[in-house]
């Protein structure tokens, strides 16, 4: 059942909790069940790499653009990663036009951290001339329809798009975006972000927008191929106990292994 427009957040929460105590979610899923997930890559011709993700009714696009720029002074021989998320007003009635709000900034930064701290990109290989010219990798996450779980889905789409990105042609130091080399971006790790949310005493994965709007707490963990973690973010107004953290970690770890199969 979809949320009715006349329902207050309090009523919605009661409704969701009633179902959870009976052991199911409003859309009939189990607590640890993801919605059907489809990932397609190489779907945007104008991007150097791209991915389209659909999970339940959430649908989003990620595009990678490359540019040649001056490196940061403290990392003169490393390329630069930038991750942006635009919560486009097209994708949800609650999203507004204007400069990025705190929600889109947090989404982008959590995804950014998962990729950056996993060292997924071998940034040394992005150096063209030390201190002068390096590749800048821009990852832009754009939801088309938002029905929850943008961090996990945006993060997976981002790494899928990065893995499929190819360098544009460079002629006499100038980029020709019309043509691409066969050479792919140096991606050496696949971080998978998993968010577990807490509503009352229940821990759920892959929340819908309705579930997110009534959560007590959430925890996003980015998992590496060897099962280690490289980034975390706690959200929500309520604290979590260390027992709950244990359960979230165990659940997140198990789900990350399932999701990893979806990324080639």
């Amino acid at each position: 059942m979809q949320r009715s427009e006349n329902m207050t957040n309090h009523q919605l929460r009661e409704h969701i909790c009633n179902a959870l105590t009976k052991g199911f979610r409003l859309d009939g899923r189990k607590m640890d069940e993801f919605r059907p997930l489809t990932i397609k890559t190489d779907c945007i011709r104008t991007a150097e790499g791209s991915a389209w993700v659909r999970c339940g009714e959430t649908e989003l696009l990620v595009g990678i653009k490359l540019a040649l720029e001056k490196p940061f002074p403290d990392t003169p021989d490393e390329g630069v990663l930038m991750v942006g998320a635009e919560l486009l007003p097209l994708a949800n009635p609650a999203f507004e036009s204007g400069p990025p709000g705190i929600e889109s900034i947090e989404t982008a930064r959590v995804i950014d951290r998962g990729i950056r701290e996993s060292h997924a990109i071998d940034t040394h290989q992005l150096c063209v001339e030390k201190g002068v010219k390096v590749w800048t990798v821009s990852v832009d996450i754009c939801p088309l329809n938002h029905d929850g779980n943008l961090i996990d889905l945006g993060g997976m789409a981002a790494i899928a798009a990065l893995k499929n990105a190819k360098f544009p042609m460079v002629k006499d130091g100038v980029i020709d975006y019309q043509e691409h080399q066969d050479k792919k971006l140096p991606i050496v790790e696949t971080p998978i972000p998993v968010t577990v949310i807490k509503i009352g005493d229940n821990l759920l994965v892959d929340p819908t927008e309705d579930e997110e709007s009534v959560l007590d707490a959430r925890l996003t963990m980015a998992f590496l191929e060897n099962g280690n973690i490289c980034a975390m973010q706690k959200g929500g107004d309520e604290p979590i106990t260390s027992e709950e953290f244990e359960k979230m970690l165990e659940l997140g770890s198990r789900i990350s292994k399932e999701l990893r199969q979806k990324i080639r």
Binding site: T46, A47, S50, K65, E86, S97, P99, S138, C142, Y177
Partner: peptide, 18 residues
């Protein structure tokens, strides 16, 4: 109406958001 190009939608360089 609001027209917007996604940052990766241009034929050349990245389009700055906003």
């Amino acid at each position: 109406c609001n027209y917007n190009m996604m940052p990766f939608s241009g034929a050349g360089e990245r389009v700055r958001p906003g």
